[in-house]
Design a protein around this nucleic acid. Structure first.
Lengths: 253, 253
DNA sequence: TCATTGAAGTGAACGGTGTTCACCGTAAAC
DNA sequence: GTTTACGGTGAACACCGTTCACTTCAATGA
């Protein structure tokens, strides 16, 4: 994303913005090689000393959050691009393409993946939770499932059939903007999304962490299996052969 | 596990064994409070200096592996105990009880859980991989699913219907002992186990890491939902109401 | 235009980490 | 009773996150 000159920003502000971009770039560079991201290494890579970074970031955790947020944003763009490579009317194919791209990206960039999706945020501040919660990747997948639903109208649970805790979580999500465009009575769809995300997350984390037979990881068969089992839930039982072919084509790239 | 005096071990060997136990105890104590396990802190807690630990462990990673292995072993005993609290003939109930106990333990001991199940072993040595792969928890869950299968004889995939990579992984697992007691022609059952483990792992990691709406985590509804959806796969469709009640009873403790 | 202000960066320092090495006492082994 | 080697120490190195006093210099306002 080439940074056009924004006249509303003063020169200093523009330079500051550019430094933030440099921080992210340096951090992602380091994550290509090492699983650990260190503040000092980032500073060194930028030609700065460590204390200088504290002008931009309150502490190490905030650096990680910043980088994680930007990684998620950038990765989501590649997921969206994978979807956009297909016919705009092929909602099912778009969902599967983005999902497959997510899996491939995770395995190809395990450190970046870990920083975004395998970081404990239970004991973190509210800011952190908000950032991660409005993850753009989650937003994208929700949209793609919604598109499938618009086409297929697969059954979704009524809010009254869901447990109270779930209903609350769907009616008033932590970040309202995330599902604001989904009508209140259709929020059961978000529960279906969460079911799917849970399964996708399970395979991918197992694969990225290496907690699975290497031969199975390499083949991608468990990932395919998950998609195959989830397809009927979103009205795509009949599309499985085509979708599976689509996945295999993408996996073999 | 009270250590009886083993006359086959010399005094020195016994003392060494006891020191290993102390290392694990000190480490687990530290993990109760802090998410990070530091070699120096372990040494200090034992009244030693850091270099002394290198008489027992080659490096930090080996300390983590040792602790992770022992935690897995100890945790598995509590899972097994949860199963044993039920009628020995109630294979379904035993599986669900152990599974629920796993989820509860994970949420109650997030640091211990992370060290065992959310540690990247992709870029680790072979020793590490072997240790984690012969995880006793995996062994237990495989046994419990096998018991359910003996009772219900739910359909399992034929090896010929599975992808080559999967077939290889099932026929010659990384650690042969793990599934040695399952006949070659019944190895499709292990694939069903892996499907179930993937789903269980997905929810629990999401919950432990806090990457889910706190209200949903607290209620345990997504975990219940996963069990509910998996039940038919192992011939337990009709048992869902009873099993769900069993879960809810355990969750409310 | 000049003085002032404040943002950005530095070097030194503190406490923490994993790790290595030379050294030492003492308990086990021959 | 002598020798061996095991288990422990203290000092040191390189790295980490973080703080603080200090400088520099560009943007700002009079």
């Amino acid at each position: 994303m080439p940074h056009l000159i924004d006249p509303t920003l003063t020169r200093r502000e523009r330079q500051r913005e550019s430094t933030y971009a440099d921080i992210v770039t340096a951090s992602r560079d380091l994550l290509q090689d090492s699983p650990e991201l260190s503040l000092r290494a980032v500073a060194a890579k930028m030609g700065l000393t460590a204390p200088a970074l504290y002008r931009y970031v309150a502490n190490y955790q905030e650096l990680v959050d910043l980088v994680a947020f930007e990684i998620d944003k950038a990765a989501t763009e590649t997921f969206a691009a994978a979807a956009d490579a297909l016919d705009p009317d092929d909602a099912a194919g778009r969902l599967v393409a983005a999902t497959t791209e997510f899996r491939q990206w995770a395995l190809g960039n395990p450190h970046e993946f870990s920083i975004v999706f395998a970081n404990p945020i239970a004991e973190a501040a509210c800011v952190r939770r908000e950032l991660v919660t409005l993850a753009s990747s989650g937003h994208l997948l929700t949209d793609l499932i919604h598109d499938v639903w618009v086409q297929r109208r697969f059954p979704i649970p009524a809010l009254d059939d869901l447990a109270p805790a779930v209903r609350e979580a769907l009616e008033e999500p932590l970040i309202p903007a995330k599902v604001a465009h989904i009508a209140a009575e259709d929020r059961g769809l978000v529960w279906v999304y969460m079911q799917g995300w849970t399964q996708l997350y399970g395979v991918v984390v197992l694969e990225v962490m290496g907690h699975m037979d290497p031969r199975v990881i390499e083949s991608g068969e468990m990932f395919i299996d998950v998609v195959r089992r989830f397809a009927p839930t979103v009205g795509l039982a009949d599309d499985v052969p085509r979708l599976e072919a689509l996945i295999r084509e993408r996996l073999s790239r």
